[in-house]
């Protein structure tokens, strides 16, 4: 893959996020700069507390940086209103979490319909879209099961289907295999790789599993104490 021909999709410049509690300040992210190009599979690795999830939340627009900028598809996220940030999460990115974060009282299909509702999909079309999304992750037999009736792998596949509901260009995955056994982990990773290769969806994945990162990533960003110590292409 020639990087020169690819336009940068996400530009992170001198990004810092400092948490301050009473008189103590904790720099979760410190002066981080990197680029992610369209269709890249990027892994962020590092130990617990190295600032991986904070970085992901900043790109998702769930958190605001203390300083520095994120230019997402040409738009400066620092200048976005809270409503614009909600639209960013709704249409531009899809999120996958270690703990799945499905709404427990809603069935698999209802969790996806909720995301479609936020996306403004007409009521009539939601059900068929949700069914085809669940079919694409191999869960058409589990449509009406509640999250606690699903296995970890199944729940994460529902989460992937939900992340894809509004056709995002970027998927932000926060330790997507962290709660899964190795066989299920491989299934999930294959699914993400497939999305990346076949549908050119940019993937930014946080993981502490170096091996997984190395097998699937175009780029690995290694964080330590909030700073990038190494970038591998």
């Amino acid at each position: 893959m020639s990087q020169v021909n690819l336009e940068s999709d996400i530009k992170v410049r001198n990004l810092s996020r400092i948490y301050s509690k009473a008189s103590i300040t904790i720099p979760a992210i410190h002066d981080v700069t990197f680029d992610i190009k369209k269709g890249e599979f990027v892994s962020i690795v590092g130990k617990s507390g190295s600032g991986k999830s904070t970085l992901l939340n900043l790109i998702a627009g769930l958190d605001k940086p203390t300083s520095g900028t994120i230019i997402f598809e040409g738009n400066d996220m620092a200048k976005m209103s809270r409503y614009k940030l909600a639209l960013h999460r709704r249409f531009s990115v899809g999120m996958i979490f270690q703990s799945f974060n499905l709404i427990p009282s809603r069935s698999a299909i209802e969790n996806i319909i909720l995301a479609l509702a936020f996306g403004g999909i007409p009521r009539k079309e939601r059900k068929s879209i949700a069914v085809s999304l669940l079919k694409s992750v191999g869960l058409d037999h589990r449509l009406h099961h509640l999250p606690n009736e699903l296995s970890g792998g199944e729940a994460q596949r529902v989460a992937i289907a939900r992340a894809l509901a509004n056709n995002p260009e970027v998927i932000l995955a926060d330790e997507p295999t962290g709660n899964l056994d190795s066989i299920t982990s491989k299934e999930i990773m294959d699914m993400l790789i497939k999305l990346n290769k076949e549908h050119q969806i940019t993937i930014l994945m946080v993981t502490h599993d170096k091996e997984t990162a190395e097998t699937c990533s175009d780029k690995i960003i290694r964080l330590k104490d909030g700073s990038i110590i190494r970038t591998l292409n």
Partner: peptide
């Protein structure tokens, strides 16, 4: 947590 999830998948404050 549910409110957090809704926000993460694009729910706006007004909604």
């Amino acid at each position: 947590r549910e409110i957090g999830i809704m926000k993460a998948i694009g729910g706006s404050e007004n909604e």
